[in-house]
């Protein structure tokens, strides 16, 4: 299995999180005839995802909306149940008990919607402590809250404790979101588009803060984003998803500088860059049509209806992963 190859490359490390052949299907409403035949149709949101995240590591999942990257994150968070596959954390199959939830935390995309508007900042940060029964007294918890706020550089801390979320800017709110995950001292943080709602001028600051915290606490991130440029900046390894399947994965630099799968190539060719010399230049995007629905996947390679290089075999046979060196894998018949 390809994931073992990666493992061999990193001999002395055991993975913190191992996701193996993960499948998340959502059942669709059945028609009468399907009901009587006992068949079921599914939207195959995630269809065989695999990856490993090590200690002090940042792994990125990129792809367009509907490719299954968020569902994969939710499955890791145990917020949706996979139909098959395994998610192993520290070598053990994950359970949705409190212990796992303490170790794996999430940063949400929308800092405006993910904080309760009726809670003060100190209450928002106290809630995870109460749930996980950390801190014996209110004073002890307050110290932890202050520490978390300082870590995300919301100081002077006293000024923020009693504020409500609406009194903070978007960037400050997202810092509270980060503080809320950190306060439990997690080992893995699932960050689903953590900066996409923030202004460009403060995005880098947020990413830098998250990076600093990674080093300081030897944290690991599963970074989910549609923004390839920031993902490259933030992660060591990435996986590109298309219709629930990882089509290419490897070191971020290898995949972005030397993409092998036609979908990755198309995706990268579409990324805008601030290069004034290219004004009014029509971009060549080697891809046809629009994303097909995940409820009715094409046979063979699921990218073939849009692929400019599609051959006969692509319509019949699903491509296997080919090893391209340094843990760089791609699933395409061309390789």
């Amino acid at each position: 299995m390809p994931s073992l190859e990666v493992k061999n490359k990193m001999k002395n490390m055991t993975a913190l999180l191992e996701v193996h052949d993960l499948k998340v299907y959502f059942p669709l409403r059945r028609s009468t005839s399907e009901f009587f035949r006992g068949t079921h149709k599914y939207a195959k949101a995630v269809d065989g995802a695999f990856f490993e995240i090590f200690e002090n590591d940042a792994f990125g999942l990129i792809g367009e909306s509907g490719c299954g990257k968020t569902t994969t994150g939710k499955a890791v968070m145990k917020l949706v149940n996979p139909v098959s596959g395994s998610i192993r954390f520290e070598g053990k199959e994950t359970s949705d008990g409190l212990d796992y939830r303490k170790k794996v935390q999430m940063i949400f995309q929308d800092p405006y919607a993910s904080l309760n508007p009726r809670f003060r900042i100190k209450e928002i940060l106290e809630e995870p402590l109460l749930i996980h029964k950390i801190g014996k007294s209110r004073r002890e918890r307050l110290e932890l809250i202050k520490g978390a706020l300082e870590e995300v550089k919301l100081s002077p801390v006293e000024e923020y404790l009693n504020r409500f979320p609406h009194m903070l800017s978007g960037g400050q709110r997202q810092r509270v979101g980060v503080a809320r995950t950190l306060i439990l001292q997690p080992e893995l943080v699932v960050a689903d588009e953590p900066v996409s709602m923030l202004d460009l001028s403060i995005r880098a600051e947020m990413l830098q803060l998250m990076k600093d915290l990674q080093k300081k606490h030897r944290l690991s991130y599963l970074y989910i984003s549609h923004d390839i440029s920031t993902t490259k900046y933030f992660t060591d390894r990435i996986a590109v998803m298309y219709l629930g399947k990882i089509v290419e994965t490897g070191k971020s630099k290898d995949v972005i500088e030397n993409p092998k799968h036609p979908y990755t190539k198309a995706l990268l060719s579409a990324v805008p860059e601030p290069i004034p010399e290219r004004i009014n230049e029509i971009k060549q995007i080697p891809i046809k049509g629009e994303v097909t629905s995940a409820t009715n996947l094409p046979p063979g390679c699921r990218f073939h209806p849009r692929c400019p290089y599609a051959m006969d075999i692509c319509k019949k046979e699903e491509p296997q992963y080919r090893e391209l060196g340094r843990g760089h894998l791609a699933a395409c018949h061309l390789l």
Binding site: S269, A270, I287
Partner: peptide, 9 residues
């Protein structure tokens, strides 16, 4: 999405 964005541009 990024590909659609490039097509619209």
């Amino acid at each position: 999405d990024v590909i659609v964005q490039a097509q619209i541009m």
